[in-house]
Design a protein around this nucleic acid. Sequence first.
DNA 1: GAGGTGACGACCC
DNA 2: TGGGTCGCCACCT
Length: 112
Amino acid sequence: MKPETYTFFENVYYVVRLIPSGRVTNYGAIAAYLGSARSSRMVGYAMNAAHTLVPPIAAHRVVNRMGLLTGKHHFGENRMQELLEIEGIKVVNDQVIDFKKLFWDPMLELKI
DNA sequence: GAGGTGACGACCC
DNA sequence: TGGGTCGCCACCT
């Protein structure tokens, strides 16, 4: 995936598809991996368009930097948490338990 | 065709 | 240290 030939969104989708089941990452990490750490907002917006994609991407594995399920309203209140729990991730009060341990850093895992 | 908007987060007082 | 500001850029109106 070459950043110069694809839009920022395309690259976001590419990274999100690589997130392993049972792990989570955050918007800022993806933005940073794509070279613009300040575009985390765009990553969030990309997720908004995610469910229109075919095939749909695992947007539920992307949470904010606190491990909060800020995007759950776009899934349906319980949908996002449900999907995460199916993958073995515990969520209490919209907060991912052990977020620090489950955190999947593309910068680290994909080695740029 | 132009402007407002947004699943966020880094940076600056 | 803590709150406010601003960047980012594809989409929708």
